[in-house]
Design a binder for these strands. Sequence first.
RNA 1: GGGGGCGUAGUUAAGUUGGUUAUAACGCCGGCCUGUCACGCCGGAGGCCGCGAGUUCGAGUCUCGUCGCUCCCGCCA
Length: 591
Amino acid sequence: MNGLKRTEYCGRIGKKDLGNPVTLMGWVQSRRDHGGVIFIDLRDLTGIVQVVFNPDVSPEAHRIAHSLKDEYVIAVNGTVKNRPEDSINEKIPTGYFEVMVDSVKILNESDPLPFPIEDEIDAGEPIRLKYRYLDLRRGPMRERLIARHKLMQTTRAFLSGEGFFEIETPFLTRSTPEGARDYLVPSRVNPGKFYALPQSPQLFKQLLMVAGFERYFQIVKCFRDEDLRADRQPEFTQIDIELSFVEAEEVRSLTEALLVEIFDKVRGTHLPQPFPVLTYEEAMRRFGTDKPDLRIPWELSDFTDLAKEVDFKVFRSAAENGGLVKCLNARLCGSLSRKEIDDLLEEIKPYGAKGLAWIKVTENGLQSPITKFLNKGFTEELFKRTGASSGDLLLFQADTPEVVNAALSHLRNHLGKRMLPVSKDDFRPLWVVNFPLLEYDAEEKRYVAMHHPFTAPMAEDIPLLDQEPSKVRAQSYDIVLNGYEIGGGSIRNHSREVQYRMFSLLNISEEEANQKFGFLLEALNFGAPPHGGIALGLDRIAMLLSGGNSIREVIAFPKTQRAVCLLTEAPSEVSPRQLQELYLKLIPPRK
RNA sequence: GGGGGCGUAGUUAAGUUGGUUAUAACGCCGGCCUGUCACGCCGGAGGCCGCGAGUUCGAGUCUCGUCGCUCCCGCCA
């Protein structure tokens, strides 16, 4: 840069600089050439300031300014001046000042851009991802990544202050059964063997508890080779926490304090404590989901008992065959037209819904195609259980419990966000606790762990492990915010016996358990303290903090839904030589 | 694995019942302009209508297939 030294940032030019010489460096945001005087908005990390090239002040600088184009990188020397009174720009923080340029140096040129560097942009996501380094020059992207930085720094400061140690764990580790599909890494020095990238540092953090660190945390990448969603990337970041000598309540109150601190420090939002705590059973009953969005003040009510008595076949057969009949009271949605209500069925078909029964509550009574089937007892209870009043819309599902809950909770979210003033500045956290320890996997014909296989059952449910495994509740907890699961954890099994019982319920023999998890099981034999922890989804928290709809917006270099990086074009083919070194041979994909 | 939406200049979009040379805005290139800040004015270039078949005298438009992006279901302990 020929010994040039920047003396101030563009966004920080102010009264203090008036009359002083400054050297600024940055990018050409825009050029306004009046034939005579030329204005440039110069941008750096901190903002923009107008720099002025006047041929009467410096003919040489003015000549160079003619050749400047968008996103050229330049250094300017000049003097800070007040703008003429009629030229003040109130829209930018430096709008009262400008820099009259004496000399300018072009540090680098730029090709014409694929899209403009502006806050509001209408370019599509693919082009933004291909040129992510340009997309990240835009103010909103910069702010989101800076907020993410603050989130990480706040977390580190808070947890360090609480006596936690940040300890790294391996990325090249062993593949274990259960859970998500692993990303595998072939080992060159061990032909035919593979590492797996961790789905989470779960086992290592438990080993750190056995090692006596008592309080561990890590901000760490995790890898899961599963299909992507707006809130799911194949590599994502967790705030991973584990503590010894604690029970669930302590992990929860620590997590609450951390989240309160994060929301305060990063966006100045106060989260009221304590967070509500719902059992899994209660969440499913009242909201039909284990991650309800509490910004929507609607609940479900159960009519399965009464449905057995009514003359409406859809209701009665569901109720008699182990299904559920539930109702969502979409308050004040009675204004929806017949067609709008019919269209709702399309919304819930993906969840297996086959129909949608509805009742409008009007001042003149109930209006519905199904009231003629309902007996008096049913309609009386209708008001009691749903709290319905005039103007409300009651939506019914009668089907298997899974379909009923999925469909109604989707309608609750869908209609709630459409009909209610649900704000992204409104944050409603809650805990959902005591999930079932196990769920039956019909495909594999065995139980699988709902959280993970190291989760401890609730002490009072241990007797049920043999008779009714599906009724056993876990000492587990999810933290939910505005309909997103932003974290989950549990108290772990520190007893080797209980851990073996868990494996046997999962249909994993003692021999297999020893082979695959032997290192953990053995560690439990050497004075493992009672311990538990939680993992928070940093990307999702960052997304919610910045009001986004996708975690891609808070990840510097995210992947597309096909798990491709449009910037680097990863994944890519590799050379035959690389494959040979790894003793790998490709099999063409089945058609 | 399945369902929905989208794919047309560099970018974002329009494009009628299938019909002449595929439009517009921004951007880009050239010229003019000494107080603009979405600067303004004049002129110009720029197209594999995602790709491939098919129907048709004729396809951006209709059909089938395929690829890509996206949202969702399954999947994600």
